[in-house]
Every structure is written in structure tokens, then in C-alpha cells.
Simulated assay, not measured.
Amino acid sequence: MTRLRATQLEQALRDAGVRVTRQRAALLRVIAGSEDHPDATELHRRAEAAGAGVSLATVYRTLTTLQTQGVIDKLEFRGEPARWEAADQRHHDHMIDVDTGEVMEFTNDRIERLQAEIAAEMGYEIVHHRLELYVRRRGARSADADF
């Protein structure tokens, strides 16, 4: 799956008129192999660890191009740098641990039904939505007054 995803990412860059250099190809492999929600700095670190020799500016430009091409999604969680994930995943929502920054994916049929019911009651149908739950482990204390 990683190889297929990397090939799709390469094609998206080519479709956008971007040359796929050795450094970009290595970065695309890192992106394709990511099963979490890395930010640009983390992707840069991983690419460097893989010997890609890619600049952080190239990472940002590549991510922006891939987002424009619709193959990755930019996730902007409150107080966090933008994170990225593949756009071809089935629908899911996110829980963000406000103390650790961990991002967890989840699906819940009851939440999906309730959202659809609420929209219908108001005369609408949902065409797209994104649900983010900002969470803290029960009993945990934090100095963050915003939560």
C-alpha cells in the first residue's frame, strides 16, 4: 500500500507540473508510509533520517501542492502546527489530547446518525463535516487555562 500511495503522490506532483527529484521522491515515501498525523517538521525529520537531503521549504511546498491536488488533507487543530494525512481514507473523526498532542482517529455510528438527524431537522443534509474532540485523560491536571 505504501508503494502504491507513493506512486499516487508522485503522479499528483507531476500533474501539477512539479518535477519529482530524488529528494522529493524520498519525501513522498515518508509521507506515504506515515500512519500517524505528522506536521511538516516531523516529516522533514523523518525524510532527513531516511537520507533524503530535502529542505524544510521543499517539504512545505510539496505538502501544499499535494493538498491542492487533493491527495492529502491538512488538519489544523487548535494550538498545534498543521498536520497531514492521506485524503483517500474512509471518513473518521479526531480526538486530540490537549496535554500530549496525540491525535487519535475514531468512528462512531451514533454520532454520524445524530449529526444527520440534526441537519435534517433543520432542513439540511450533510455534504461534509469534520469533528474534533479536544480531550484530557480523566483526573489529569494541566496549567493550560484555555481548556
Rank of each mutant, 00 (worst) to 15 (best):
G17M: 06
G17P: 11
R19G: 07
R19H: 08
R19M: 12
R19N: 14
V20Q: 06
V20E: 10
R24C: 08
A25N: 13
A25K: 07
V30Q: 08
V30K: 04
I31V: 00
G33A: 05
G33Q: 01
S34T: 03
E35R: 08
H37R: 10
P38G: 05
D39A: 08
A40M: 00
E42P: 02
L43R: 04
L43S: 04
L43N: 00
R45Q: 11
R46E: 13
R46N: 08
A49H: 03
G51T: 10
A52H: 03
A52M: 03
G53Y: 00
V54W: 03
S55I: 14
S55K: 08
L56Q: 14
L56R: 15
V59E: 13
V59W: 13
Y60D: 14
Y60S: 06
T62M: 12
T64I: 15
T64N: 11
L66K: 03
T68G: 07
V71G: 05
I72V: 05
K74I: 09
F77Q: 03
G79S: 14
E80K: 15
E80R: 15
P81T: 02
P81Y: 00
R83D: 01
W84T: 05
E85F: 07
A86T: 06
A86E: 13
A86W: 12
D88L: 06
R90C: 01
H91W: 14
V98A: 01
D99H: 07
D99C: 15
G101Y: 02
E102K: 08
M104A: 04
M104W: 07
E105G: 08
F106N: 00
N108C: 05
N108P: 11
R110S: 12
R110A: 12
E112D: 14
E112C: 02
Q115G: 12
A116F: 04
A116G: 06
A116T: 04
E117P: 02
I118P: 11
A119T: 00
A120D: 07
G123Y: 05
V127P: 12
H128K: 14
R130H: 15
L131A: 06
E132H: 13
E132S: 15
L133M: 07
Y134P: 08
Y134I: 06
V135M: 10
R136K: 09
R137S: 11
R138M: 14
R141T: 15
